Structures are given as C-alpha cells and as structure tokens.
Amino acid sequence: MTAQTSRSAYGGSPPANYERYFVPAIGAPLATDLVRLAALQPGERVLDVACGTGVVARLASPQVGVSGRITGLDVNPGMLAVARSATPADMAIEWHEASAEAMPFPDASFDVVLCQMGLQFMTDKPAALGEMRRVLMPGGRLLLNVPGPTPQLFAIMGEALARHASGDAAGFVDQVFSLHDTAQIQSLVAGAGFHDISVQAETRSLRLPAPEAFLWQYVHGTPLAGAVDQMDDDRRSALEHDVVIKWQRFVKDRALVLQVRITVATACN
C-alpha cells in the first residue's frame, strides 16, 4: 500500500472502515475483555453507550439471551448505520442516535451500562456519567474502559500528523488517549454518585496489521480521513515515510505490536 493509492483502497466511509479494520484489530479484543468482566446474566437489560459500530452490543447479546435486551446509543448516525448493517438478523438490538449527556431513556431502564473507549470524547463527562447512573436501576452495574497514556506507536503518528497534516489532526490522536489518570477516573465516577468503585489499569498487547496497512486503515476509519484527504500526494507520502520508518521497531513477525494501557472502571448504582 502506498500513500498515493490509500484513498482508493480505503474508499468506504470512515464508519465502514472502522468496522472493517479497527474493530477486529483493537475494538473486538478490548470489547471481549469488557463483556467478560461484566459477567452478564440471562434476562439483563444492557445499554452500550458510545456504541460506535456495535461490537460491544453484539458480544453482549448472546450473554443476556432472548429474555434480555441490548440497546446501543451513539451520537454518530454513520456509526449507527454500520452497526445496524453488521448486526445478524437473529440478534435483536435497539439502536438510538443521541448524546450520552442527554439519553432518551426513562430512569432505571437498565441493569448494566457499558461504555468502551467513549468517555474521553464526551464534552461533559460528569453529565454523561450522571445519565449513565440515572438510567441504571438501583444496584445496577457500570463498566467502562479508556486507553492511555498515548502509546509510543500513536505518539509517532501524532507527531507526523502535526508536521504534515494539521494540529487538529494531531489533536484527535491526543484526545483518544486523554483520559487515563486513575485518580481522575475514580473522582469522575464517584462524583456521579456511584459506589463500590474499582479502577484498574493493565497493559494489553495487540497484534496489528503491517505498518503501511495499519496507518491507512486507522486514518481512513477515523475523523483523520478528512484531514488526510485534503493533503496532496507528496505530503501523504512524507507522512507515510515518517511513520512507517519509526514504526519498524514495533514490528514482530511482520505484524505491528501495540502495547497500550487500558484502564477499566467498574461501579454500582
């Protein structure tokens, strides 16, 4: 894959590319961890906040069975369109387009609220957590995860984007990993009124595609796609060169190996 052909190779919408590339490499492994930790039970009502293309919701559905209910909520209609198309016909999941800070659900509607890699993007985090608590029944459970601090691999990408694209593009990478301090997360969750809070961090090792492929898959599956599409071929080539050269030290058996710290918070209402 070259910078010149990247646009034609990844010509789908960012949400479609996100589901096709990001979810298998990063989203699904972390979602599997989160759903396993949730220990969902048959019949439970589960809300997936900032559901994206729905990987958490799809993994949760078999755990609650036909007597349970899975609902996904996201502010991005493109993500929800892909979520609907990616959901098997025999899997009943409700999808809602709305902000996490103002959910369209009655109080005490759910037994479990899950939120994967979404809280860091929310403008009003206390309000979003307050809404998560409001829609949980008494005794209900909250589980969320966030990545960070910025892994070396993504720091290299961010620095190259700042040089060759824009500060805003680099800022997106920073925002992905902006919420990771365990004390801050503990304070946010406690401030929303939750109790029995646990905040734990561990480093996960994920095998990604080869450097050239992963660079363009990530770019074209995120809001970075618009910024990079504005660049000419020379600048895209320079971006690719700078990133791929420095990523070589993270390659093992032709795969890019990402070491990323994931913080998981659990709490009860």
Rank of each mutant, 00 (worst) to 15 (best):
M1H: 11
I70L: 10
A102K: 12
P138S: 10
A3E: 02
A128N: 09
G221E: 06
Q259A: 14
P24C: 09
A155P: 00
S187C: 07
A92H: 13
M122T: 14
Y218Q: 05
G130N: 08
T266N: 09
P106A: 14
F22K: 00
C268I: 15
A255H: 15
P209F: 09
E97P: 07
D124A: 05
V189P: 02
V112D: 11
V75F: 05
A213Q: 15
L34V: 08
D33M: 15
S198T: 10
Q63E: 15
A265T: 11
Q152G: 13
A108I: 05
D242Q: 07
C51K: 04
I185G: 01
A169Y: 01
G72C: 12
V112I: 15
P104G: 10
E202S: 08
C115Q: 09
G193T: 04
Q120P: 09
R36G: 14
S166F: 14
G43P: 08
G11N: 08
S187H: 13
I262G: 01
E19L: 07
S205I: 12
W216F: 13
V82P: 06
Q63S: 15
T5E: 11
R20N: 10
V75R: 13
V35R: 04
L73S: 15
R7E: 09
I185H: 01
Q120R: 11
L34H: 08
V244W: 04
H241C: 05
T266D: 05
A267R: 03
V135S: 02
Y18E: 04
A170K: 00
E101G: 11
S205A: 06
V199Y: 00
T2P: 11
E212A: 13
R254D: 15
V56E: 02
S187W: 06
I185W: 01
L37A: 13
F172V: 07
D124K: 02
A81Y: 02
S67A: 10
A127R: 12
R235F: 01
S166W: 12
A57R: 08
F250K: 05
F154V: 00
L206D: 07
A238Q: 08
N76M: 12
A25H: 15
Q248F: 05
Q200V: 15
L256F: 07
V257Q: 10
Q120K: 08
V55H: 02
V228W: 10
A128K: 06
D232V: 08
T203Y: 06
N17Y: 06
D33I: 14
V251N: 05
R58N: 03
L73G: 04
A50N: 08
F194W: 04
A238F: 04
L208S: 03
A190P: 05
P211N: 09
T222L: 07
M1A: 14
Q4C: 10
V176R: 03
L119Y: 02
V112Q: 10
N145P: 04
A162C: 06
D253R: 14
D48T: 11
G148K: 00
S166I: 14
Y10N: 00
F121R: 07
G78E: 08
D232G: 12
A100H: 01
A83P: 08
R69G: 05
E97F: 09
S205K: 09
L179I: 09
V23K: 03
D181Q: 07
L129W: 02
A108G: 12
Q41M: 06
D242G: 05
P15G: 11
A238S: 11
A50M: 13
L47E: 01
R236M: 14
A162Y: 02
R134P: 11
I197Y: 03
G54Q: 03
L37V: 10
A183C: 12
Q41G: 00
A192I: 05
